[in-house]
Simulated assay, not measured.
Amino acid sequence: MKLAFLASHGGSAARHLVGACQRGELDATPVALVSNNSRSPALAWAREAGLAVAHLSSAKYPDPDDLDAAILGVLVGAGADTLVLSGYMREIGPRVLAHFAGRLVNIHPSLLPRHGGRGMYGDRVHESVLASGDAESGATVHLVTAGIDEGPILAQARVPVLPGDDLTSLKARVQATEGDLMLRAVRSLA
């Protein structure tokens, strides 16, 4: 398996998977990371880890079709066969979706299908869970399809929503499950 990543910020899931590869816990080779954010810390650590890196954004490619083609070009050029979204805050273009169909995964900080869809990302998800009064939350790794957060679920981790939880405590509990959950889901694709 040749792994590539799309990240907008720190890329914690990508970092966890690269570390698992380096420790021999995942039989895969990390090959590339693309970010839409030139200041993304993920670009720096991925470069240090020996991955091909690229900053590709709508500022460089105002036409979404051109951006989609550029991203696909980098990923294919690096030899990637599996693509992992690691906090990537943009929709995936149709060329990338088609090329990596069935091999494109994302992690979402809730138990999908609850608290998913357009506009549901980051702290908004945890706020929605707390406002709904749900007894549990968690994280979901799913295959990416054209619909936002609608692809088939590969794995979920559940955590309780405790009395007195706030955004910070719930978010920390969910994030603590995400790295190993993503590792388990990517292993299932191998």
Rank of each mutant, 00 (worst) to 15 (best):
R15F: 09
H108L: 08
N36R: 00
S58G: 12
A176R: 10
K2Q: 15
V141W: 02
M120N: 11
D63S: 12
T140E: 01
L112Q: 06
W45V: 02
V161W: 01
V144E: 00
I153K: 11
L43N: 00
P160Q: 06
A131R: 15
S128M: 03
F100Q: 04
D63V: 12
P62A: 07
H108F: 11
V129K: 02
H16V: 09
V144A: 03
D63F: 06
Q156H: 05
G79K: 07
D180R: 12
L97H: 01
E48A: 15
V186Q: 07
S8V: 09
G24K: 10
T140L: 05
A70G: 05
A135P: 12
S110H: 08
S57A: 12
S40L: 03
K60P: 01
E48M: 05
L17D: 08
S57K: 10
E25H: 11
L26R: 04
L111D: 07
L170I: 08
L17C: 11
V34F: 02
N37C: 04
H9W: 15
A78I: 10
V96D: 01
S86Y: 06
D27R: 15
A32Y: 02
A139K: 06
V18W: 09
V18T: 11
Q22S: 13
D180A: 14
T140R: 00
G138E: 04
M182N: 05
S40H: 02
G133I: 08
P94C: 02
D81V: 07
V129L: 02
A80S: 13
N36G: 05
H16S: 14
V144Y: 00
V18N: 11
D27M: 12
R15G: 09
V125K: 06
R173L: 07
H126T: 14
S128G: 13
V174G: 02
P30F: 00
A70R: 05
L130H: 08
V18D: 08
L170A: 04
L75D: 07
L72H: 13
G119S: 04
H126A: 10
L33H: 01
A70F: 03
L183Q: 12
G138W: 03
A139M: 05
A80F: 11
V159A: 00
L33E: 01
Y88K: 00
A4F: 10
V74A: 12
N106I: 02
G147I: 07
G138M: 00
A135K: 15
G133T: 05
V96F: 01
G151A: 14
G122T: 04
D27W: 02
P62H: 03
G122K: 05
M120K: 11
L143F: 14
V53K: 00
H16A: 15
A190R: 15
S188G: 03
G119L: 07
